[in-house]
Design a protein around this nucleic acid. Sequence first.
DNA 1: GTGAACTGCAACAGAGCTGATGCAGATATG
DNA 2: CATATCTGCATCAGCTCTGTTGCAGTTCAC
Lengths: 191, 191
Amino acid sequence: MGQTATRTLRADAERSVRVILEAAERVLAEDPGASMEQIAAAAGVARTTIHRRFANRQALIETLASSAARQLAQAVEDGRPDTAPPLVAMHRITANVLEVKSAWAFALELPADPDSEAARLHQGIARRCIAVLERARADKLIDEAADLDWVRRVYYALLRESLQDNAAAADPDTLAARIIDTLLHGAGPRA
Amino acid sequence: MGQTATRTLRADAERSVRVILEAAERVLAEDPGASMEQIAAAAGVARTTIHRRFANRQALIETLASSAARQLAQAVEDGRPDTAPPLVAMHRITANVLEVKSAWAFALELPADPDSEAARLHQGIARRCIAVLERARADKLIDEAADLDWVRRVYYALLRESLQDNAAAADPDTLAARIIDTLLHGAGPRA
DNA sequence: GTGAACTGCAACAGAGCTGATGCAGATATG
DNA sequence: CATATCTGCATCAGCTCTGTTGCAGTTCAC
């Protein structure tokens, strides 16, 4: 049955849910079409247990998406987007987001149903992001004529790219520095 | 049977193959897990016809990937990567690539088997790309200390992002201009 | 400690997809 | 025009996945 109504699960059940979601992220990141059986195996749980906690594949994925989106929103807030100096906020947020995104890459790339919790969270995050960019522009870090929506999209693209062949799994702060530098200055020669 | 050996298909059969590949691109772009039946329907062809031309789903997808990669390589060559002035080449290549990528988005994003034709083509394209960037660097368009592999990855990311919510389906030249501008100067204030 | 909640296991029906085959009719090619 | 090729259609077997149920054994919570 669906667990839309959260009727205070027992401690072990709650743990099961967490383990299942983590396994789902790992397995689906590698193969988005993986079966419930594979997810169950990766979670060290019987397939029926997944079906007891999630009505169907769809429900599992939606829960996964919201859960990850909530963590992402937290990562952004932790960077103090509207109190820290813009450049500091950008660095901190970027490093935080890189850590969350590397752990929940699949869940955060899911195309979200427009009126899902995940979609609302992502919209809120985008607004936060734009707000930081506006503060940066006010500080002359960004060109006055810049289209901030494009800048935000470029920023997202840089985040994604940094996590792609993350074989090096480099330090988030190093990656963040490169992202912000590229975002603000591109590849051209420095003054 | 597999058609690895191309034994001069009849004209109508060749046309069928093309129609199937185009349909596969369209359908799979929207839903990567779509069935052969759906692809056949989109192609206006019986499902059995697909199976006659392609041994299995895998073979169809590989053909799709190579075909698209070949077109992409052509698009790059058409920009005269090693004779035109670097900035001109970058613009032309970008505009060409945008057109091909918008038509074959799914096929070109496929994770290619390391020793497939598609993979070899993509490697060649990446080399070409690096070569252009080196020429741009020699012309002081790119910082001397820049990591060209990172620059190339950023370039790819910008291309991808530009095609994402291509609702506007803007003029390739306009998009290309923005990509190159962002790549070289970022979002910071202009001198 | 007692009862309720949770889990694994086994088994089930239903659905969808794949790949193959045979045949009859249409179409290109020389 | 004659033949080889191609296609649609109908049908088939086989597989995998999903979602459910019943039961027996374990674990949490009060």
